[in-house]
């Protein structure tokens, strides 16, 4: 997301916005890290549901690198899932 206009003018508001962004980004990155080696269920567009063992994501979250992807038509040992194809994903901690 871009900087809000209020943030650019007012240093106090800018700092508050940076702090909020950093806190939320750190939480999100830690969540991504914790997914490594966990079994993830992906709900995708066109009502496609798959499960896979999570490997890693690139930082802009454009691709998920996964293993043992269980698709409706078989298992793919190593795969990349396009994040644009995904609606949601879930896993247990």
């Amino acid at each position: 997301s871009s900087l809000s206009t209020s943030g650019e003018a007012d240093p106090v508001a800018l700092r508050a916005e940076q702090r909020a962004r950093a806190m939320m980004r750190e939480r999100f990155l830690r969540c991504l890290i914790s997914m490594a080696n966990k079994k993830i269920q992906f709900l995708m567009y066109e009502r496609v549901t798959v499960a896979a063992v999570f490997g890693a994501s690139d930082i802009d979250v454009l691709n998920f690198q996964v293993s043992d992807l269980q698709t409706p038509i078989g298992v793919q040992t190593e795969a990349l899932i396009r994040c644009q194809d995904v609606i949601s994903y879930s896993f247990d901690m």
Binding site: S1, M24, R25, F28, C31, V61, S90, F91
Partner: peptide, 30 residues
């Protein structure tokens, strides 16, 4: 959290015990 880069939302369903929980993430574009 909400990822400020993609607007994806991380939701947590807390279990009874202190340990277990499940997590679902809805992609920002969806």
């Amino acid at each position: 959290t909400v990822d400020p880069v993609t607007a994806s939302v991380v939701l947590v369903q807390l279990g009874e015990a202190a340990g277990g929980c499940s997590v679902s993430v809805v992609m920002g574009h969806a």
